[in-house]
């Protein structure tokens, strides 16, 4: 840095550093490609904001006045509407068959809540004023608890429900 000759203005990079940086760039390219493939070609589902609603009046009209399971195609396709409130879910149990395509619609009427189904990677926020939507399929029968993962106050630890997946 001290001498202004043209030799020194080019930054010296140690060969090991150069190799390290190349390896890092290759790893990054692999990451980027696999994320792109997963996001756009394999159709991996991420929770999305389905629509905006008024949290105060949402339960005045269907479907939210009677949250629960809607059978679209028996044994194959189900919609599940769940309302989260401090500190419980409506309904607190839902039942769906194994292998069916289940779409969850979840919203909140007061503060943020979370909606995480244990032992799966279904996990999204229930934001007041927004309906979150995610489609998933349960391949094994059993009971899957859904718990609140967003801190919502005093009763946060006791806020859960369960999905019964039947044969």
């Amino acid at each position: 840095m001290s001498t202004p000759s043209s030799e020194k203005t080019k930054m010296h990079i140690d060969p090991t550093e150069r190799a390290w940086m190349r390896a890092a760039i290759v790893v990054l390219v692999i990451f980027a490609v696999s994320v792109t493939i997963a996001g756009f070609m394999l159709g991996i589902q991420v929770p999305t904001e389905e629509q905006r609603v008024n949290p105060q009046t949402i339960q005045d009209a269907p479907p939210w006045s009677e949250p629960g399971v809607r059978e679209i195609v028996p044994g194959e396709k189900y919609d599940v509407y769940i309302v989260s409130k401090r500190f419980f879910y409506e309904p607190s149990t839902v039942e769906v068959p194994v292998g069916a395509e289940v779409t969850f619609y979840v919203t909140s009427t007061d503060v943020q809540h979370g909606f995480k189904i244990q032992d799966t990677n279904v996990n999204f926020m229930a934001v007041p004023g927004e309906v979150s939507k995610l489609t998933t399929t349960f391949n094994e029968a059993g009971t899957y608890d859904y718990i609140c993962t967003e801190y919502c106050g005093l009763g946060h630890a006791a806020m859960f429900g369960s999905v019964l997946v039947t044969q």
Binding site: E17, A24, I25, A32, G39, P47, T48, G114, E130
Partner: peptide
């Protein structure tokens, strides 16, 4: 988990991986 959609999440995912590079350096 807030429901930002696949494009935003893929973008922020890659950006987050990228920040590991200068840290690794």
């Amino acid at each position: 988990t807030a429901g930002l959609g696949p494009v935003a999440e893929a973008g922020f995912g890659v950006a987050t991986m990228m920040i590991a590079v200068p840290t690794g350096v």
